[in-house]
Amino acid sequence: MATNRATKSGFAAEAQRKVNAKYSEELAHESLEWIMNITGDNINTAGDMDNFYEVLKDGQLLCKLVNCIKPSIVKKVNNSQMAFKCMENINAFLEAAKELGVPAQETFQTVDLWERQNLNSVVICLQSLGRKAGNYGKPSIGPKEAEKNERIFSEEKLKAGQTIIGLQMGSNKGANQSGINFGNTRHM
């Protein structure tokens, strides 16, 4: 657990301060409110890091959350407070979140929550899961996901587009080779 780690110093402490500075209490509060709404559990929804960590650290509430979104997605939730069992819960949540559609880059590592290394990444994961919950008939949080907007062009339109030189290509108007004397040395 986080209390067993030595305190960081030097560059490690500076790096940890930068990671902690990204944490948003408003988003954490919104995430906890959403979890309380989905699970029906009465939890403390204060967004400060200490409360956020204490509410989620054993992974039981996270497993209950994904089971409320899609029943039986996590088969076994460990009720033990042993470190290994708690980390198993967190890992089971992460696997379920990926299965529910949370992109891998928006998930976190187990130690980010269990050892309190990066709670901001936990908030990002919950916000992403909150967007995906709408696909399963549950209340969602955060911005609405974009819908697919597929365009179909005719062959004629595609060929017409090939004749246009885009502005990214640049221009050579007025260019010539006067004044260029590569390899030609000055004659005396």
Rank of each mutant, 00 (worst) to 15 (best):
G47L: 15
F52V: 02
V55K: 10
V55P: 11
L56W: 06
D58F: 12
D58Y: 12
G59C: 05
G59M: 03
Q60F: 07
Q60W: 06
L61F: 09
L61S: 06
C63H: 10
K64W: 09
K64T: 05
V66S: 00
V66F: 00
V66N: 01
V66T: 01
N67C: 02
C68T: 05
I69F: 03
I69T: 03
P71D: 12
P71T: 11
P71C: 07
I73A: 09
I73R: 13
V74A: 08
K75E: 10
K75W: 02
K76T: 12
K76Y: 13
K76C: 12
V77Q: 14
V77H: 11
V77F: 14
V77G: 10
S80D: 08
Q81A: 10
Q81M: 14
M82Q: 13
A83C: 07
K85W: 10
C86F: 08
N89H: 04
I90A: 04
I90C: 07
N91E: 06
N91R: 04
N91K: 03
A92I: 09
A92L: 06
L94T: 04
E95D: 12
E95S: 13
A96I: 00
A96L: 05
A96S: 10
A97F: 02
A97G: 03
K98D: 06
L100P: 11
V102A: 10
V102K: 05
A104L: 15
A104D: 15
Q105L: 14
E106M: 12
E106K: 12
T107D: 02
F108K: 11
F108M: 09
F108V: 07
Q109W: 07
Q109N: 09
T110V: 14
T110H: 07
V111K: 04
V111C: 05
D112G: 01
D112C: 10
L113P: 00
L113K: 01
W114Y: 09
E115M: 13
E115W: 07
E115K: 09
R116D: 00
R116L: 02
R116M: 07
Q117Y: 03
N120S: 13
S121I: 01
S121F: 04
S121G: 07
V122C: 02
V122L: 01
V123T: 07
V123R: 02
I124C: 04
I124V: 06
C125S: 07
C125A: 10
